[in-house]
Design a protein around this nucleic acid. Structure first.
Lengths: 180, 180
DNA sequence: ATCAGCATGTAAGGCGTTACATGATTCA
DNA sequence: TGAATCATGTAACGCCTTACATGCTGAT
């Protein structure tokens, strides 16, 4: 029944902080919110086009950069209203889709060594992501006085806290499998 | 480039433990693995049909139950091989898609009260889910000797541990927002 | 000289959801 | 009597990813 494209509010949220090109939006998604949200060019550009038609964003100025014309988008007041409506909407779709847990759940179909190996792989990925988030956290702590940064800081601490919980669980789970 | 339908291995994994109907598979997905995986009838029935053609599952026996004919599926040895191949594949797509974090990240576009409210809503949902997982855990502890159950137990403890970490973070985050 | 990065956009196709169609049984 | 549960399946449609098309600039 449509019109639930989350990419719209993601873009609007980013533009509420600063004017950006579609290319920049992609980079922000990949870095800043990458650990809990994804987005590709194939969804960003069409969304920007649609939202411009709806008056939620505006093409601001264009320049040339890297040999290609550059379109900087700016959020309109209608766009801010739309964003706020979403922020005030109490329903939020939170979904975890962890193939690692699926493999663990079905671990009985293989030897326990395979299950342990899958936990170890997960552990390595978590450690890598954790290292990145810790750097983000350090940088954000220096600019906590700035309006939006305290929110960025909180999402980063969410990531760090949950990843740390994952690592503790990994250790326990491996020990459990080696014991049983 | 297709053929990456995870629903296939989910079904195969469930059938590796016991014979099931499509309807039963849906129930297992919703309850047992519901906190980290989803699946609808609209994906389950076509998957069963395709996998039967590929020889990964077999229609076992059919009876009548609840006024409608009932088709019980059984995993074949080719199905078990397929499942094991997936379990031994080192790549696993783990994705977190939390709209709550998105709203928090963009919290600067509204008052901090709205952000606090969204954290509280998240907190309530987590508490509800946690209560269910704790009951699962208690029940699983009684049958840990049975082969597959130790794997079920581990996924449940993963859920409990991360949800507990979420709740700690929620408390911290609310306090932070009220202080700053 | 070549590759990565900057930059926008379209096309094809996969995955999955929701809604619909159908209908009997069981329980309140 | 009516709702919930059992049970299978299809159709429409939406979202999103991957791949492709295009091409300049700057660094190695």
């Amino acid at each position: 029944m449509g019109k639930d494209r989350k990419i719209d509010v993601v873009i609007l949220g980013l533009l509420a902080h600063e004017d950006l090109t579609g290319y920049d939006i992609k980079k922000r998604i990949d870095t800043a919110i990458g650990f809990f949200w994804k987005g590709s060019f194939g969804s960003i550009y069409p969304s920007l086009g649609d939202m411009e038609k709806q008056g939620l964003v505006q093409k601001k100025s264009s320049g040339v950069s890297g040999g290609r014309e550059k379109i900087i988008y700016h959020i309109t007041s209608a766009g801010r209203t739309f964003l706020k409506k979403w922020l005030n909407d109490e329903k939020a779709g939170n979904e975890l889709k962890y193939e690692t847990l699926l493999k663990l759940y079905f671990g009985g179909a293989e030897t326990s060594e395979v299950a342990v190996r899958n936990i170890e792989i997960f552990e390595e990925q978590v450690k890598e992501n954790l290292a990145i988030l810790r750097i983000y956290k350090e940088n954000l702590e220096k600019v906590l006085d700035k309006a939006d940064h305290k929110y960025y800081y909180l999402t980063v601490t969410f990531g760090i806290d949950t990843y740390e919980a994952y690592l503790k669980w990994c250790k326990k789970a491996r020990a459990f499998l080696e014991r049983h």
